[in-house]
Structure formats: C-alpha cells, structure tokens
Design a protein around this nucleic acid. Structure first.
Lengths: 259, 259
DNA sequence: GGTACGGTCTGGTCCGTACCAGTTGGGAGT
DNA sequence: ACTCCCAACTGGTACGGACCAGACCGTACC
C-alpha cells in the first residue's frame, strides 16, 4: 500500500479511521513498546477500537510500508528496528563542484548525431528516427580532469543542441533554452578501473580506480539524458548523511500531496 | 506493502489471485497501453476477471507502490511514466542483500581489543582508556565474497562484544542486546583498486575496482561504529533515484486525450 | 451564449463474514 | 519420559455489500 496518509488537514479535520488507528499504533509502538515488541493482534485491535479487520489491516499496512512495523505470519506484528535511509539530491556536475568550492570547467570532445545502442534508445524512449545527440566531454575541477562523460540526448526534444554552448551545465541549458528542467533521475553506481583510452583522457595512470555512474535524467517524465560518467575514484568523493526519519518527520514528509 | 512480487515459484505454482491480476495488469500496462493511458476501471476489472473489488484494489495497490500505476480520484487509474519517488535507502549489509534477493553471510576474520588510530578515536569520541573492539569481517552474498569490513567499536558502550555472535547483522545486535539501535550515520564513498591482501580476502584479482565506504554510525547521538567497507566494484552496484519530491506537474495543456 | 444542476462515471472507505496458512504449546498415546 | 498430533492462537486472502467523494458531461434553465 502506498504511503497515502494524506488526510489530516491540520484543522483537526476528521481523519479516516485507518489513519487514526495508524497514528494510535505508531504512538503505541514508539512510546509504549520497544523495537521487536509485539503489538496487539489484529482481532484484539478490531475489538478494542471497534473497527473491522479490514480497517485494522489497512492501518497496519501503512505502518509496515513506512517501515515502522513488520508482520510475521502465524506469530504476530512487531515493531521494526529503525532503518537507515538517505536521499541524495539531484545536482549537475557544475553545481556539485561549486558546492565543494571548486571551479568547474569542461573540455568538449565531440558532438554528433548518431544512432545510439538499443539499450540507450530504449532508456530514452526513442522511436521512429533513431538518431540522437552523442556528446563526449571531460569535466574538470580547478583545471584538473575529474570525470569523463559519455552522453546521449534525444534529437527531437533538443533541436539544434549542437549550436549551443556545451561548455557549461547542460542542465541549465535544458531549463533555460528548452524549457525542460531536469527534475528526476535514475542512477546506478559501480566501480571500474581505467583502461588506456579513459586514463589518457583523464590524464591519469592506467588502472586508476573509477566511480562509474549511469544516469537517466528526465524532465516532466520525458527522458532527456542517458549519460555514463567515469569519475576519478582517487579525487572524487561522495558524501552522504543517513538518518532515521523520526516519527514526526515521517508524518510531515508524507503529507505533501497537494499541489 | 513491500514489493513482494518476486514470489513466483519457478514451478508456476498457483499465485494468489491479486498477484495474478497484478501480473496481468503490469503486462497490459507495459505492452498494450502506453504511459499515461488509463487502465480499465476497478468495477470493469472485477467483472472481466471475476474477482471482488477488494482483490482488484489489492492488485492495483501493489503496482501503485511499485510506481507502475497511479490513481486519480474520480478519473481513473493510469500507467505512470517516470519512476521517481523512492529514495536511496541504505540499510545494513544483511538487509541490503536480502532486498536484492541474495543470502547474506559472514566470515569472521578477527575480533580484538586494540588501540585505534587517532582519527578513528576522534570519530568515535573515545577518551581515557583508548581501546576499542577491532572487528574484521568478510561479507558474502550467496557464498560469494562481496565486501571486506574493517570496523572499530567503542569498548565502553559494548561490553563483552566478543562473546556474541558476530556472524550476522551487528546493527541488530546493537539494537537487541545493547538497546542501542543505529539511527544515524555519516558516510563517504570513493574508489580504490584492490591491493594484494584485500584481493586475496575478496577472492578477486589484484587491481579489482573497489567501492570504498567509510561510515560512522551512531545511536542516540553516541558514535558506535567506525567502519571502512571495501565492496567489489564489479559485483556490487548501488542504485538510487534522484528527484524533486513533488513532480505532479504534468498538468500541462498539451494532452491529447483518447477518444 | 453562458451557467447551474444533476446523473453517472471514477476511485476511497468501511463493514462483516468465511476460510486458508504458518506457529505454538499442551494433552493423549506410546 | 518421550513423541506426536491437534486445538487455538497468529496473520493472509477473498468474498459481497454499502456508502462517500471527486470528476465529468449533457441538459434545462437563465
């Protein structure tokens, strides 16, 4: 069940029954019971709260999907041990580097219309004319090569891309010129070692460790970018804070649903 | 409801009705319909598939929480285009592997009281007696070495740590035995290549690319762990969704409706 | 022409019932 | 004393009915 606990209008408006029960159970779990303690059985809950079993289960569903409870068939429902979670924010290379106090720059290697590999075409949702912009760039920080980018961009959505300045942030270009700000991305990260060609472009020794990102970015649901970036693993570090969403925060974040 | 659709017993064993319906709807959504197309209404589905509405809703619930569909009250249920939403959520190694459908295990190399490097002592906030538990472990998934962990744990907060089973999740141990659930962490990630000793322990060739995590975890503000984990970069991938939380702004007028 | 109304689509909530499926512990039989 | 089995828990699935609430559209009314 999705985390839909959207109700609660702050005005004290009447919550749905299962939302009320969720809140009551969450408080019970956190304040009265400890981690791994069992909450009352579903049939007990329907009796003490005077609701149907479906409502009880719905209330528990929400808390389970929020990670606060977990069920064990035949045994009971238990308070979960807090989990860690983190969100990395979406930032372009330029933003990223500036935040680190470094001056970003770009060495453009090539811009061409070409036919992408089928996997890329699929990720970008290309059809018909299968060509797309292929853009290869080296990204630098304070003049030192940091990353090698190999990107594909759909031709139809970005006409005349090659006539613009590709020496800066493509994301800013998308937002300002094409009115298509990047607002979401899927990213996969793994490790590699630099082969000869990559090492030369990064001005690094062969076998230098690399952090490789494969990212598909989109604007308003339309994929705009498929890029594989190879970062020098010895010069580039990723930092993240992981924290348990405490209860109050959990409530707050799950409330933004209007628009 | 967590994404449990991995069930499907290779023998084609009988799935639950809502799971069957989920699969059917997923296929329908992907193959027949396009993004933003409406799926049949719930009442239509219960008629054509001969199931109750509760079952239909349950089936749709699963797909909604998987991000494949989204509902609009009063209008219908639609195939979702983007895939945003979910955040990178980092958990313990054991949880992480189980989520990937792999069986986690551990090879304990050593547990000893020792004096940590000053940088570690500082991170852990050690004073007075400067000793701490040093725990070296190899973590495996389905029997294959994935990561080498080199951890330091404060002695004062974890008395008798060496007498417990260190073959599983330390986080669970902290929560259950020491009543100190990990609730926050700071983590830094970079790349390395495996030296001879590391390569041997990971059963990998020298110069294998590694993803290196340095993590300081704490419980209720007290640092409990300083661990450096070296993951095989060729076997371990990190996946993350980045996005603005709320991007329901597809309300643009350029919608060619069906007719 | 413009507007207000209401019928009728849609999903959202809630009830009560029935039965299936793991888990556990205690009593009957050995 | 031991083993085995079954009753009685637990959560999991599924049914059918009822009503509420948002969205839409045609129609009757200004």
């Amino acid at each position: 069940m999705p985390t839909n606990r959207s109700a609660r209008t702050r005005t004290g408006g009447p919550l749905t029954k299962h939302a009320q029960l969720s809140d009551a159970l969450a408080e019970l779990a956190v304040k009265e019971l400890g981690p791994e303690a069992a909450i009352p059985s579903e049939r007990e809950l329907m009796a003490t709260y005077g609701v149907s079993r479906a409502t009880v289960r719905k209330a528990i569903d929400v808390l389970v999907s929020d990670g606060l409870l977990h069920r064990v068939h035949g045994k009971g429902t238990f308070v979960a041990t807090p989990r860690l979670e983190s969100r990395l924010h979406l930032a372009s290379f330029s933003q990223d580097m500036r935040r680190r106090g470094l001056e970003p720059s770009t060495r453009l290697l090539s811009v061409e219309l070409d036919e992408p590999p089928s996997e890329v075409a699929r990720a970008l949702g290309l059809d018909g004319d299968g060509t797309a912009w292929r853009v290869d760039r080296v990204r630098l920080a304070d003049g030192e090569p940091i990353a090698l980018e190999h990107g594909w961009y759909p031709r139809a959505l970005l006409p005349g891309l090659d006539r613009h300045d590709l020496g800066g942030s493509l994301y800013e270009l998308f937002a300002d010129v094409f009115d298509a700000p990047i607002d979401a991305a899927e990213q996969t990260l793994w490790g590699e070692t630099a082969d000869a060609a990559t090492a030369r472009r990064l001005d690094a020794p062969v076998n230098t460790p690399l952090l490789v990102f494969r990212r598909v970015s989109s604007s308003a649901g339309r994929p705009l970018e498929h890029v594989v970036s190879r970062y020098r693993g010895d010069r580039y570090q990723l930092h993240m804070s992981l924290g348990r969403d405490d209860l109050d925060h959990r409530r707050t974040t799950s409330e933004r649903k209007n628009r």
